[in-house]
Amino acid sequence: MLPAVKDYRDLARRRLSRFAFDYLEGGAEDGRAMARNLASWGQVMLKPRAMVDVSDIDAGVELFGRQQALPMLVGPTGLNGLYWPRAEEALARAAHAIGVPFVLSTASTSLIEDVRAATSGDLWLQLYVQQDRRIAESMMARAQAAGFGALMLTVDTMVHGKRDHDIRNGFRMPVPWSARLLADLLAHPRWCLRMLRQGGSPQLVNLARSSGMAANLAQQAAAMSRQMDMALTWDDLAWVRRHWRGPVIVKGLLTVEDALQAQHAGADGIVISNHGGRQLDAAPSPLEQLPRIADALHGKMHVFVDGGVRRGGDIAKALALGACAVVLGRAPLYGLAARGPRGAAEVLAILRTEFEITLRLLGAVHARSLDASWVA
């Protein structure tokens, strides 16, 4: 096991092709939103309490009536097959081995049914809504049939943010051949062989199955990037409710006003998120917005936060500022890209260990006891 998440990031950078790592790591435009996300965690100081018996601690939390071992989710990320074959199955197993839910993306490269077959753990579905809403309805029905417990509706991707790194690399799906791409592949033979063994470029298989689309990655990518439903409004949460029986979490909110709208519309939870800094480069960091939003909701909704969690201590900071759990994005992917399924499990184990160390050093016996009184 490597010492920290950043070490897996460095190893992933060496092992992935350049365009694959840039897709994983890059933010929108000049990367300022992503930089704000990472910097915001360092601005929060915590107040330790001395002379507390921390021989036994409880790092768990309850989410929607289910006990979870840690206050974190392995969150939804797309095109994970770029980093390792059967990526979503590996991430789901790693999440469930450590006792936390896994959230499967609409843009996943493994089928809903295959991920369920790989594990009996807690699975949630992340949903993008296309113009043809029958696609979303099909995905919800398939996930319900497979026993997925919660729905995470992403609302900050009416269009894709401008990602300069992808333009510079000529990255699109499928990746067009060029001399630069050939040189990139030759420099990363192990990654290239893994991709060849899985049949080349990963497919957006769930989108394809629910839309009746052929195994054509260019068509699938076009459906994701150009056919999003830009007319989606708060009134449409009632439509989601008609097709989903369990908890509904709205992901991609950054203001008190939108959080209150989500509450009024009947959502069970929200994720304060700027999409990992990949959408609006002028967006604030989610952590900065967390205290105001949590205060406005008065504990009446589940509040999650994402955006740059790299240390177990970050989880403690999020809870102290009002979140019930954090949503992990890039961190487990660094592990997956660096060392495959073992690397993903190691990253989650590092975060667990660091979080437990933080609780003991703070003198916090229960994770759920963390609140604003612990913030310096």
Rank of each mutant, 00 (worst) to 15 (best):
V52A: 10
G42S: 11
A146F: 01
I135P: 08
A92Q: 06
M228G: 13
E354V: 09
F148V: 09
Q43T: 15
A331C: 10
G42C: 05
S285N: 08
G329Q: 10
V5A: 02
G81H: 00
D56Y: 05
V305G: 06
G329D: 02
F64P: 03
L16C: 15
I293P: 01
Q198Y: 00
G308W: 03
G340N: 08
L63W: 11
R241T: 11
G65T: 05
T358I: 03
R93A: 13
L217F: 00
P174E: 03
Q261A: 15
I293Y: 04
V5F: 00
P332H: 00
R360S: 14
A349I: 03
L73P: 02
R241C: 05
F355E: 11
L127C: 12
D122I: 02
W124D: 07
E113T: 15
E356H: 09
M72N: 12
H243G: 09
Y23N: 13
D314G: 04
Q144F: 01
R190P: 02
A69E: 14
Q144A: 15
L232E: 03
L2G: 02
Q227R: 14
A150Q: 06
Q144E: 14
L370S: 10
L348H: 10
A146K: 09
A95T: 11
L196E: 02
R330C: 10
